[in-house]
Nucleic acid binder design. Structure first.
Lengths: 205, 205, 205, 205
DNA sequence: AATGAATGAGTTTTCATTCAT
DNA sequence: AATGAATGAAAACTCATTCAT
């Protein structure tokens, strides 16, 4: 590797690192205060720079949200796709998807909160249409899985499938609002208990 | 009753009716767009009047949110209090509370959404401290009930109680985001199915 | 006419009057300082209101320029079209067009200056494409007229037609930079002298 | 000459060359987009460097405009002064000045455009007062010449002298907006035709 | 009850300029 | 000579709120 090559990579990498830092800060602030209620100045304050300086790195407040959300979704779907490609049974797939979801929350907590709270609102703009696409694909994935599980006899067939879908979806993702990395329970611990509740219920056996 | 008296009551009543209408509109808009992202003008547009005209009825945007939320919470707690006063067993109480919750969603859907999405943010202001009080009381009510149910042998004891609490809380209230009055399933239908999932799980027996 | 009808017309008219006032002020400031160098605040100051208040009447600084320019162009073309419809000879048409042009300058001086100085720049945006259309039509009108005049023997044929076109065009419109309504010479006086220069030259006979 | 000396001269010369290159680029961009609407970044982009890098060569955006304009004016006046020193008759002087003007446009097209469009605005700052001085001297030169020509019987006496002055001034300089070096007509060709129009008019003899 | 014009504080964004490297 | 990250002041624009009518 020539020194010139190394330099170029060095600065490109440094820039990417800085962007990632700033996005992490922005995501944190967006998640805790709400996207609309967060001023660019608050993000900058949290990053220790001035408001205008953010515009050296990003085009707009919106483009920060965009990058935060698309990065999260790409990573989430990569995880889901690995699970789906494994060719497991319905119940094992469900378990793996839920574990994967909690791991996504672990890695992208503020982005998940942002997604939960703002995607309906953001998706009205053309730029964020991929949020709707993701939602649609998500619903298809789950309804197909639940239908397969019901027909295979893995899941109860006496419940409304749409209701089950929403139940699982909400249950999992809302957890991003209170999950804390490094807390008492790890993401995998929580996944395990959620699975127990969802599969077996809370009623004493 | 003198005509003068009747008139006064008539206008006072008419005023109250108009306020309620406007609050219902405002709640709808706040719920669908988010409180911070909703301008007073959007609310007024939805009500068919001009922005400034809302100030004849309300002091401020905040006071609209205040009235929407406190009305909802008062009504919700009235329902809960009736249940708690009935002296039922743990499991029956849980069932009644969940039914009651879905009925609250049925009556106050936009207010519930507003509460879900904005209470953390709003509660930073003195005026909305009652939101925190309500939350605290809510958590106490549920943890007490779950503890009682576990000790009575009604609920499983192998799960983390905090987790169960959050699971139920989130599961129920997030439904306000998709619930539609007059839809395929009534609030009581949904409550019944949610109870089945929460108590028995989705796994085939 | 019902009172209701009169009211509605009254307020709509009042609004139109106010808009026109503000646009006249804005045009004056844009013309004297340049569009890009003019801040919205300067326009507002000149109108005796605050910066933000302009946004009650107009969407943006750009939309003010838009309305100023399109109003001017519509009026200018109405005048030209009347001339063209009269079916005069080439020389009489030229005279009438030049008189009409100076009258346009008289009625819309700041708009003409704005057009002269900023249209090249503004026309890069989709919204101002009509400026290019107008320019194109203007050029076609003049080159057709000059060609007709040359073939009819009214105008010299030994000069480059494009050059003559530009000569006349620039000569006329640049006058907006120094013309003053109510000054020593009226618009028609200036037109007469310009015509003398353009047609006969400044050389002593 | 010592090598050290040669180096110093070499770098000084190289620096001057680079400055000239950058000024030419800046003038081009200022002319095409307008001074106020041109960001330093756009100039830098056009030069293939970053915005901040321009400040190694120039103090400020203003000082670029300053250098562009004063270089042009110095050169223009050197040409005019040569003509005036030649002691020609009024008509020959007019011809020579117009030829000289088109040669100035040929050599400094973007600077001329900048001068035309921005000098009124720039001249409000102390630093650019020389623009006003130049204008004043320009007007004096021309009005004196036109008066001399009228009294000598070279130019018509029935036209308003101020009007003639403005007519010639505008006519010539506005051509910088469309003139292209290396186009169909050379600067001298254009000068010749302009002279024909100005002196003899466009009317068929 | 509601209008319509305005206020004024605050928000997002822009941009000339600086400076350590 | 130039880069790249920042500054800081000012710009365009937004919006809750006021108030005379």
């Amino acid at each position: 590797m020539s020194p010139r090559r190394r330099d170029a990579e060095g600065t490109a990498a440094a820039r990417a690192v800085r962007r990632a830092e700033l996005l992490a800060t922005a995501a944190e602030v967006f998640a805790s205060q709400g996207y609309a209620a967060t001023t660019v100045r608050k993000v900058a304050d949290a990053a220790g720079i001035l408001g205008g300086s953010l515009y050296y790195h990003f085009d707009s407040k919106e483009s920060m949200a965009d990058e935060i959300l698309s990065t999260f979704l790409d990573d989430m779907w990569a995880g889901y796709d690995r699970v789906l490609a494994a060719g497991l049974g319905a119940r094992e797939t469900l378990e793996a998807l839920i574990v994967e979801s909690f791991r996504s929350i672990d890695r992208h907590r503020p982005a998940v909160v942002l997604y939960q709270n703002e995607s309906k609102h953001l998706a009205t703009s053309e730029r964020f249409h991929y949020l709707l696409d993701s939602q649609r694909r998500f619903e298809e994935m789950w309804t197909a899985l639940l239908a397969r599980g019901a027909s295979e006899g893995a899941f109860r067939a006496d419940l409304d499938p749409t209701l089950i879908y929403r139940f699982i979806r909400d249950t999992v993702w809302v957890a991003a609002n209170w999950y804390q990395r490094g807390g008492r329970l790890s993401a995998d611990d929580i996944a395990k208990q959620y699975l127990a509740m969802v599969l077996e219920g809370i009623q004493a056996g």
